[in-house]
Structures are given as C-alpha cells and as structure tokens.
C-alpha cells in the first residue's frame, strides 16, 4: 500500500470518504489503513477463525465502496462503517447457522500480536472479556461499541438502530452487571 502523505494523514474520515466518492484512489486505502485493525478486533470477538474475520473486514470495505453513492457527507463516517460491518457479521453468523464462537482461554496465545501483556494483565483481560461475553446480547453490543470500539453513545445507537437514550440505558445496565460479576469473582 502506498504511504499516505501528511495531508491525507490528518484528513477526517468524512473528508476521505468524500474523496473516495469523488474518485480519489488513495482515500479508501487510507480508510482501510485506519480501520482494518479496529474492525478485525470487532469481528474476532465473535469469530474464532482468523480468515473469516479478515474476509468480513474486506467485505465491509467492499460494501463501503458499493454504497459510496448513498453516503451522506453530512453524517459521521464511523457509525456508517460499523453498521455495515456489524450487519455483515450478523448475516455471516446467521448464514452459518451458529452462535458466536470465540476462544477466551488464551489458548491461541502463540498467535497473538506483540506486545504480550504480563500474566496478571492477561488474566484480568480474559476475565473481563468472559464477563462481557456473558452479558445479554443487547447490552453486550452497546458496551462493545462504546467501550471497546470507542464509539459515542450516539454513534453506537446509530449502529444498532436504537435511540441514544436506549443505548445509554443498555450500557448502564450492562456495566452494572459487569461490575457485580467481577466483584463477585474477586470476593
């Protein structure tokens, strides 16, 4: 991939998407560079097979390209991107007729990208991820988008087709449940 110049580096997602719609071939490459790892993490939360997660990230950007004529420059790019990604993941899981499967026991530690966390950090992270995965799906979805993917409640709500207030309520209940479970485990 060609190295982006400084102007592209500082360009907003929306500006890059506008450039892609206008036909700039480097703009999508820059967006891909920005969001590949983030989307891969989001996919890997529910998909144990690495290639499937990577394929879905590719498909997400393919859909972004196909839907470029419908992109509204007045709206934020990130929730639009995540909406496409989450819908593709949902469709994929539904087509396979199975529930999300993710190894949470660190059994693939030899395949992790550096840097490796300390054993204590890794254990804490594993416990929190397990607690998140045990949440009801609606609460889990909001928490993953808001906490792990750093979307605002408004953006998470857009992705999930709910109101921002509903997203906040779900997140609040989910965080309460998480805290209770983790406290119970600690005690």
């Amino acid at each position: 991939m060609a190295a982006p110049d400084d102007a592209e580096d500082s360009a907003s997602d929306e500006a890059l998407m506008r450039a892609h719609v206008a036909g700039d071939p480097r703009a999508l490459a820059r967006l891909f560079e920005r969001y590949f790892d983030r989307l891969l993490r989001a996919m890997q939360r529910d998909l144990a097979i690495v290639e499937e997660a990577r394929d879905l990230v590719q498909q997400t950007f393919l859909q972004v390209h196909r839907a470029r004529a419908d992109y509204d420059p007045a709206l934020r790019f990130r929730p639009w991107l995540y909406t496409i990604a989450l819908n593709l993941k949902r469709e994929h899981l539904r087509a396979r007729g199975r529930r999300p499967t993710v190894p949470l026991d660190g059994s693939q530690a030899d395949q992790l990208q550096a840097p490796e966390p300390s054993p204590e950090q890794a254990d804490t992270a594993r416990v929190v991820r397990e607690a998140i995965s045990s949440l009801p799906p609606d609460q889990r979805a909001v928490i993953e988008l808001h906490w792990l993917d750093d979307l605002s409640f408004g953006e998470a709500a857009l992705c999930l087709g709910i109101t921002a207030n509903a997203a906040k309520v779900r997140a609040h209940r989910g965080y309460e449940r998480l805290r209770t479970r983790l406290k119970r485990r600690d005690s």
Binding site: D37, L40, R41, Q44, R45, V50, Q108, Q111, L112, Q113, P117, Q121, A122, T124, A125, R126, V128, R129, I132, W147, L148, Y175, L178, R179, L182
Partner: peptide, 10 residues
C-alpha cells in the same frame, strides 16, 4: 473496570 486488551489473532 479495566478495559481488556484485545490482541489480534493471526
């Protein structure tokens, strides 16, 4: 809560 690290699997 401590945000869990999400290392990428490859």
């Amino acid at each position: 809560l401590q945000k869990p690290s999400e290392p990428l699997r490859h």
